[in-house]
C-alpha cells in the first residue's frame, strides 16, 4: 500500500520576523514510525503544529489521509492524536474524567464513550489510578493520561513531540513500547525527539531538519549511512548544513 498518511509539501512558515520553515517536504506512511529530527529551533514543533491544524502555513500544503489541513481542518483533527512534552492535564479531574472529556471533544458519541474510555484504560494499564485526581499522579502516569486522551478517538495518525523528555527510564520505555504497538496496529506514528538512540531503534524512516530546511531524509539505515550511529550522522549532516 503506497497511501500516504501525512504528506507535507514545500511548507513555509514565519513566526514574526523569524522564518521558521523554508520549504519542508516529507511523507509519513501508515504502519511506520517516522522520525522528525533536528536541533532546537529547527522547526520540528512548528511542522507538527501545522499538521495538526494549530497553525496555518504561509505557503505549501499538508494533507492527512487525503484531507487538506486548510480545506478540511475538522476532518484532519478527527484523524490525528497529539502527545507533547508539556502534559497539561486538568489537575482537578480524575484520569478517567480527563480522558472522557477529551473523548467528548473529539466527537465520541455518548453510547460509545464509556466503552472507549474503558478500552483505552485497559490498553494502557491505567486501572489502578483511573479514579485518582490528575494532580496526585506521577509524571509517567500523567503522560499516560495524555496518551490516552490522544488515542481515545482511535486516530490513524499519532504524533509524539518529545514525549519522553520529562520521564524516567521505565516510563520512557512504556511510551516507546506503545509507539511500537501502535505501528503494529497500522497507525502512522510521527515521532519528534532529541534522543537519537531512540530514533535509531524505533524509526523506520527519518527526516532531519535544520534551520527550516530538510537536511536529510529516508530510511533510517540509509540516513545513518557510513557513520557509526545516527547521532554521528545527525551531527555531521547538521554541521555541514550550518
Amino acid at each position: 500500500m503506497t497511501e500516504k498518511a501525512v504528506k507535507v509539501d514545500r511548507l513555509e512558515k514565519a513566526l514574526g520576523a523569524n522564518k521558521v520553515l523554508r520549504g519542508i517536504s516529507l511523507e509519513a506512511h501508515p504502519g511506520e514510525i517516522f522520525g522528525l529530527l533536528g536541533p532546537n529551533g529547527a522547526g520540528k514543533t512548528t511542522t507538527l503544529r501545522i499538521i495538526c491544524t494549530l497553525l496555518a502555513p504561509d505557503a505549501g500544503s499538508v494533507e492527512v489521509l487525503g484531507f487538506d489541513t486548510q480545506v478540511a481542518p475538522e476532518e484532519v483533527r478527527r484523524r490525528v492524536g497529539v502527545v507533547t512534552a508539556e502534559i497539561g492535564v486538568y489537575p482537578r479531574l480524575s484520569a478517567r474524567e480527563n480522558i472522557a472529556y477529551f473523548a467528548e471533544l473529539s466527537g465520541v458519541l455518548d453510547g460509545e464513550l464509556d466503552r472507549k474510555v474503558e478500552a483505552v484504560l485497559d490498553r494502557l494499564d491505567m486501572g489502578s489510578f483511573a479514579k485518582q485526581r490528575a494532580e496526585s499522579l506521577s509524571s509517567g502516569q500523567k503522560q499516560k493520561v495524555a496518551i490516552a486522551r490522544a488515542i481515545v478517538h482511535d486516530p490513524p495518525v499519532l504524533m509524539f513531540d518529545e514525549p519522553t523528555s520529562n520521564l524516567d527510564v521505565l516510563a520512557s520505555r512504556e511510551i516507546r513500547d506503545f509507539m511500537v504497538e501502535s505501528k503494529g496496529r497500522g497507525k502512522s506514528v510521527i515521532f519528534s525527539t532529541h534522543v537519537l538512540h531512540d530514533a535509531e531503534r524505533l524509526c523506520d524512516r527519518v527526516t532531519i531538519i535544520h534551520q527550516g530546511r530538510v537536511v536529510a531524509g529516508g530510511p533510517t539505515a540509509e540516513v545513518r549511512g557510513r557513520y557509526h550511529d545516527l547521532e554521528d550522522a545527525f551531527l555531521s549532516l547538521v554541521e555541514a548544513a550550518t
Partner: peptide, 25 residues
Amino acid sequence: QLGALVRTIVTCETCHRTLSSSIGV
C-alpha cells in the same frame, strides 16, 4: 559542545534524574 551543536542536559542534583536533554545550535 559537539562542534556546531551543543547538547544540553539538565538533571536534578537530588534525585539525579534527567529533566531534559536537547540538542541546539
